[in-house]
Every structure is written in C-alpha cells, then in structure tokens.
Write a protein that binds this DNA or RNA. Structure first.
Lengths: 227, 227
DNA sequence: CACAACTCTTAACAAATTTTTACCTAGCCT
DNA sequence: AGGCTAGGTAAAAATTTGTTAAGAGTTGTG
C-alpha cells in the first residue's frame, strides 16, 4: 500500500517539483491549490501526511493546520514557511504541526523530514514485540528469528512476509493481498513469487516442511498462518 | 501517585501551553522561570521528569542539565532546543540529557518522548558512563574509545554513530534512521555515506573487520549493534 | 596566506545476497 | 483422467553491500 501525500500549495511550479520528487520516491501524491480545497481533500482523501504551505489564497496554511488537527489529530503535517515568518509560536504548540521546513529548502531535507515524521507516526508496533509459536521466536524490532534459541537467517522479504502472517493469523490471505501488503504496488512480481517465498519460510521454520503446520496452503485461495 | 513534571522555561506562553497539555494527560506540573530556580526546584520538589529549555536567563539549560545530572543522576531530562542550536544530535550525550526536542515541536511529539523516557526510566536500562564490549571501552562523556587500553582515534561522526548504536543495541536501525539521528536533517547525505562510516568503525573496532561481530549488517534493512 | 592533515561525502566497481522467473513434478478437485 | 494449482529446485536478474579512492571542505600550523 503506497503512502499518500497531500500537497497544499498555490504555486504550480512548486507543486510540480514536489510531485515529481515524491512520486520518484514511491509516494502517491494528491494536491490542492488553496487552503479551503486543501482542507477538503485532507478530509475526504485520507492522506497519510500533509505538506502545507503557510502563505496561500483563501485560507492560510496556519488555519488549515489548526482546523485539520482539530478534526484529524493523527494526520501528520509538515509546514512550508518562508524564512522569518512567525514560525516559532504558531507552528509548534498551538497549531500542532509535526515539523516545518523554511523556504527555500532542499528537497532532500524535506524528504528526510517526511520520512522521519511518517516513521514516528507509525512506530508503535501493533504486534507484540516478541511473538512465539512452536519452537520459533520472532522479534519484530531486531528483525530476529530464533528457533530453539538459534538464529534463523531470514531475508528482508521473508521476514516481512512472516511479520504480515503473524499480524493476520488464521485469516486466509490471497497471493494478491500478500503482494499488496508485503511487496507494495510499485513492483508487482508474479504471484508465483509468493509461493517461492512461502517455500523458503517453511524450510526455515517448519519442523517438517513437507507437512506444514503453521503456514498452511488453502488450495485455490492462498495461504493461512496458524500460530 | 501522580507523575510530577518540572518545566523550566522562561516564556510564560510556552509554560502555560505545556502545563495545560501535561495536566490534561494527568501529570502534576510545577514550573520555574529560569535556570537557577529550576535547579532549586528540581532538587527540592523531586520531580519525576524535567523539561528544560536551553535558552534561559541566569543559567543556561545546558548548565542546569549538567549540574542536575551530577546531583540527581536518575532524574530524566528532556531538553527543548531551537533548530540549529549546537546540540549534539546524539541526545545530549555529554550533558546526560535523556532526549531532546527541537523548537518548534508538536505537543504530540513532546508527549510521546516524555512517555518514552518515563518508561525507560522506570525499567532499568540506563546506558552506563563507560560501555564495554569485547576489548573495546567507550566513554560517552569524554568521547574516548579505547581498545585494550589504547586510545582509538574516532572522528566526530564515527563516535556519534557508535554512541547511537550503543544506545540502541540489538535493534535493527535503518540507514534513514541513522541519518536522522546522527546527521540531522539539514544536510542529508546519501544513505551510502552511512555504509562508509560503518566500514571505518569496523576497521577500527572489530577484531576481524571482514567478519563483523558487533556491528552487523541486516541485509535489506540496515545495521544492528550487538554488544 | 599557503600547506598539510584530516574528515566527510560521493562515485565506481566488485562481491555478496536476495528476488524473481522458469521449468518440471506432484497433488488436488470435479 | 484432465485441467489447474502448488511444491521444489536451479539459474538468471536485480538489488544491496563492501571496499577503495578521489574530491570538497575544514582545521591547524608555520
């Protein structure tokens, strides 16, 4: 699932530049040209993060920020401000913006801040730190998997796949859904790729890979994890 | 017993804002308007945590932090700094602050950090003054690293990187996260820059740099320190 | 002010590892 | 039995990391 960024900015050239860069980094981008429609889109299109210019027609970015935070407190906001603008007071506490960048800024800096804010926003791990089944122990934080205490070497994709299974136990997960969740939309390999990774996981984690007890096949539908 | 927060900050509006938010979250709040009285109250009123502005009349927050840590090492401190202020990105290492937030900040971020620090403080996992692994001895305060007693010459970035690893053992740290923490946002180099520094650290600290035992790579994810 | 020493960053190429595809076999379902 | 679907393996393709070196920028010194 791609991360969706809303850019609220009245200068078309700036929007275009930002759009290019964000899309290049693999984000979905939507945009609005003034405060009012920006607020609308923020409410209706559920962006994962909003980049908000302070100076805009119709409604100032500051007001947009305030109103948006009141209605959708969990959506992170990064403000674009001109140098010397009264950032200090307004941006921080009262408005609830998560970060800001002063114009002119480097794309890299903005990108870094976006990534950091997103990381912070999503950091509280929904799954318990350490998950156990059978003789296997999965530590999400350290990317470690142990079997009888011995480290098992999983690749990044294998680990991500396993983590997704753990987060969605019992449910039957289609290959397409796994591709969406673990691989993302950008590079969409064959559904058979999923199978290969399943095989690897079984070989590394199942007591008897030929007769899986944890990662089960649901013929014609997909796979299912039972921990 | 409510958790007691001491806010040391000279700007009344900021104090008021913080007070509201902390009280709303169920904390007891006391405050001081300058460094000297802040230090006094920290000593006399036994707060569970101190939020400390760097820029203040009479005594800088940095000095307050240093003195307070010398006298009450166990009281957690979170610093409020302005952007660009010369704060060692690695969480006020020299001063012993537990975390810091750059102004302007979102109240959510500060609150998250307060909670995190309190959680850490209650569970015994302090980073000791001198950290040892293998034949290596790292002195956080004096920025010194010794190997078998011999001084190892680390550059500033190398040391900061190492310190961050030590502060986050076992956890897998992505290159982006390391860049945020050690480099900061303003000048954001390539992720490959991280790799180069890792190489240097390994060459200087690992018994056998080709087969790292302490700074491990997690292919596809980042690096991980196991001390 | 020039020079040397040093640090940080980037680039380039090689090496290692992972990911994907391809293909063949075995199993499931009607 | 026949047509799909999944398991298993290997090899190709792609990505990621290690390593080295060179250039830019800094600092310290004569």
């Amino acid at each position: 699932m791609k991360t969706k960024i809303l850019i609220v900015e009245d200068e078309p050239a700036m929007v275009a530049g930002l759009r290019d860069n964000f899309e290049y980094e693999g984000y979905d981008v939507i945009s609005a040209e003034d405060g009012v429609s920006g607020l609308d889109k923020a409410m209706s299109d559920n962006p994962d993060l909003v980049v908000l210019d302070v100076m805009m027609p119709r409604m100032s970015g500051l007001d947009v920020c305030k109103q948006l935070k009141a209605k959708r407190p969990s959506v992170p906001i990064i403000m674009l401000t001109a140098r010397g603008q009264e950032i200090d007071k307004v941006v921080g506490l009262e408005l609830g913006a998560d970060d800001y960048v002063t114009k002119p800024f480097s794309i890299r800096e903005l990108m870094a801040r976006v990534k950091a804010v997103l990381r912070r926003a999503s950091s509280p791990a929904p799954v318990p730190e350490v998950y156990k089944f059978s003789d296997v122990e999965v530590n999400i934080r350290s990317n470690e998997v142990r079997r009888n205490g011995d480290l098992v070497d999983l690749s990044a994709k294998e680990f991500a796949l396993l983590a997704y299974f753990i987060a969605h136990p019992v449910e039957t997960l289609s290959r397409d859904r796994l591709l969406d969740a673990v691989w993302g939309y950008e590079n969409y390999p064959t559904t058979r790729t999923v199978d290969t990774h399943i095989v690897h996981l079984r070989q590394k984690l199942e007591p008897n890979p030929e007769e899986p007890r944890f990662i089960l096949t649901v013929h014609g539908s997909g796979y299912k994890f039972v921990g």
